[in-house]
Design a protein around this nucleic acid. Structure first.
Length: 325
DNA sequence: CCGTGTTTAGTTACCT
DNA sequence: AGGTAACTAAACACGG
């Protein structure tokens, strides 16, 4: 929404809600969790707009973290001293933006506390996250290669081949890259190749899009996202949280590198992380059809919140949640 | 003290 | 128009 009098977009407020921005930050991290300070940093690195009035927006952001169930707090491990906790995305919060608008969610994401399937304690989710992070990193150590930084295909669940590549709606390339209709009438196509100044991995997706953006207010941040790592993630190879399923299956029980996995230590055994059943039922309501920004609008009304989770068997899926009004 | 986290409340904007 | 989401401000508690 370029306003008259403004020369560039760079100082304008990005068209993303704080929830979107926070989700982007979290998604961009290998462990899928970030401390608050890193979330701040991520946002400020990429959106110059947020380099000012930090007090204001950071307060809002903290409010959002606490207020929205789609963010879960993960306590630091004793050997990870520092202030504050880590923040991660709730596994089941994926369809909030299905209408394609990242300014306004379709529904507020709400965890059903009464659901017996849902772990009552964040620690459960934390434990799972930790496992995921460990496994990712151990897979990394084993392969000697980069792991995909983005779990774009992480939510490519269900084991159904999705040639076009499914991306979690919170994956930043999914958030930013999709065609966005500017309030002012402009329509940016994410497919426009825009050099360098773009923070997103450009080959993440099987959409094959070299992601570019029409977002001048977005700055690239070298290194934050491994844009040099081609990610050709075969669908079905990744589970929730971006953990490659194959490595996951193999890596369980491996010795883990000393990594900053900010969660409480898990027991030696990994019973809490049963071998992920593949295929994992999708955490998201309507996957492929809804991937189309076009079709998403029509798909918003009938998402059945309970349906996906009910069939889930993975720990992540046990975090039963539902979008409510 | 400062950063973090929670909560409440009011306003604005969007959607149905 | 009403409901809801997003944004903002503020107060307060807690811990490093």
């Amino acid at each position: 929404m370029p306003r008259p009098g403004r020369n560039t977009y760079s100082d304008q407020k990005p068209p993303y809600s704080y929830i979107s921005l926070t989700a982007m930050a979290i998604q961009s991290s290998p462990e899928k969790m970030l401390p608050l300070s890193e979330i701040y940093k991520f946002i400020m690195d990429r959106f110059p707009y947020y380099r000012e009035n930090t007090q204001r927006w950071q307060n809002s952001l903290r409010h959002n973290l606490s207020f929205n169930d789609c963010f879960i707090k993960i306590p630091r491990r004793p050997d990870q001293p520092g202030k504050g906790s880590f923040w991660a995305l709730h596994p089941s919060c994926g369809d909030m933006f299905e209408n394609g608008s990242f300014l306004r969610r379709r529904k507020r994401f709400k965890v059903l506390k009464s659901d017996h399937l849902a772990p009552s304690k964040p620690a459960d989710a934390a434990q799972y996250l930790q496992q995921q992070a460990k496994l990712r990193l151990s897979a990394l150590a084993a392969s000697g290669t980069h792991l995909p930084q983005m779990p774009a295909a992480a939510y490519n669940l269900g084991g159904v081949a999705q040639p076009s590549g499914f991306k979690h709606p919170f994956a930043i390339e999914n958030i930013i890259a999709r065609e966005y209709k500017m309030p002012g009438g402009l329509a940016f196509s994410a497919m426009q190749p825009v050099p360098a100044a773009y923070p997103l991995p450009n080959q993440l997706t099987t959409m094959g899009s070299s992601l570019g953006t029409g977002w001048p207010h977005v700055y690239g941040s070298a290194g934050m996202i491994d844009s040099a790592t081609p990610i050709s993630m075969a669908s079905g190879d990744y589970s929730a949280y971006g953990v490659p399923l194959k490595p996951l299956c193999h890596a369980a029980g491996q010795t883990l590198p000393a990594i900053p996995v900010p969660i409480k230590p898990t027991p030696a055994a990994v019973p809490a992380l049963p071998a992920l059943p593949a295929p994992i039922p999708t955490l998201l309501s309507n996957s492929p059809p809804s991937l189309s920004p076009k079709s998403s609008q029509t798909a918003t009304s009938q998402s059945s919140p309970a349906t996906p989770s009910e069939t889930l068997t993975s720990p992540a899926s046990a975090l039963h949640s539902v979008a409510v009004h």
